[in-house]
């Protein structure tokens, strides 16, 4: 009797291990096949990698200016010859990210409630909202920007709307997921007091989800500053157009000067957002 049980256990276990091995082997085969196909389609070879990487480092080296201690001021002046112009473009870039993030957050905030299963009983509404958000999230901001440059003309407005729409999709989906984690307990208390739908949202949902919303929003703003820096590649404002120009024209030291300014700006914004995030989330007044 008991030895039967042991045998049964052993056979089951062996089956399980075999099944797991088969699964791993299958994954391995699929992975290798995907790898092989990708290498062919992606036109990759070790030779190209071996020649490409040194050339990349040579490229980076060429972008570095010659600075000497004796004439440091003059050298820096020559390196950053268009400092003010670039600063203005960087400022515009940040403004694009700011306005786009604000618009995207407003849209994503409103739609996130419609897209939450636990808040909207009508499946048509929440599925519809979900699909719309997914669509906005899937289309990259640069594609929106290509369209909008055609419709709204060259300039930052197209970039703002493009980034805003993509942000709406990303944040709306993330917000909706936070909303779906709200406990029924906090909703019931407000519903039972005779509150209307938007009051239930304001009291039963918002206080609970706001820290998460703020956190995601600030992270998204950081990402949007980067996006705004390249949206100019298609003529939609910011520093991107200038950056593309100097890269395509091989004006090496300008490339490093602009990139350096961009990196410092992005780092400062990341730092500020992180500080703000920690402060706001620890704070009582966020309600």
């Amino acid at each position: 009797m008991s030895s039967d049980a042991v045998r049964l256990f052993e056979t089951r276990r062996a089956e399980q291990i075999a099944a797991r091995r088969r699964q791993t082997a299958l994954f391995g085969v699929v992975f290798l096949a995907a790898f092989a196909v990708s290498v062919v389609v992606g036109e990759v070879s070790l030779e190209r990698l071996a020649t490409g990487l040194p050339r990349f480092f040579a490229y980076i080296e060429r972008t570095l200016p010659t600075l000497s201690l004796a004439t440091l001021g003059a050298d820096l002046g020559r390196w950053f010859w268009n400092f003010e112009g670039w600063l203005r473009l960087l400022f515009d870039t940040i403004l694009i990210a700011f306005v786009a993030t604000t618009l995207g957050v407003i849209g994503g905030f409103l739609l996130s409630f419609a897209a939450a299963k636990n808040l909207v009983a009508n499946p048509w509404i929440h599925h519809g909202a979900r699909r719309f958000l997914e669509l906005m999230r899937t289309v990259p901001e640069l594609v929106f920007a290509l369209f909008f440059v055609f419709a709204f003309g060259l300039g930052p407005m197209a970039g703002v709307l493009a980034i805003a729409l993509h942000t709406l999709g990303v944040l709306g989906k993330l917000f909706a997921e936070i909303n779906e984690n709200v406990t029924a307990k906090s909703l019931d208390g407000v519903v039972a007091a005779g509150a209307s739908f938007d009051q239930v949202i304001r009291f039963g949902v918002v206080p609970q989800v706001l820290p998460g919303f703020v956190s995601y929003t600030l992270l998204r703003f950081e990402i949007n500053v980067r996006s705004a820096s390249v949206i100019g590649f298609v003529g939609a404002g910011g520093i991107g157009q200038e950056l593309m120009f100097v890269i395509n024209q091989f004006i090496y030291t300008d490339i490093s000067a602009i990139l350096l300014m961009l990196i410092v700006t992005v780092a400062l914004i990341d730092l500020g957002c992180e500080k703000l995030r920690h402060r706001l989330i620890g704070q009582e007044s966020l309600k």
């Binding site: 307990k185 906090s186 019931d188 208390g189 407000v190 039972a192 007091a193 005779g194 509150a195 209307s196 009051q199 009291f203 039963g204 206080p207 609970q208 706001l210 309600k287």
Partner: peptide, 24 residues
């Protein structure tokens, strides 16, 4: 209604929780 688990809004202050009763 009064509930077993109180059903207050944790992150809001006491007076605002009471004011939920005035929402209508």
């Amino acid at each position: 209604m009064i509930f077993q688990q109180f059903h207050l809004i944790d992150r809001l202050d006491v007076i605002t929780n009471v004011l939920v009763g005035r929402l209508s």
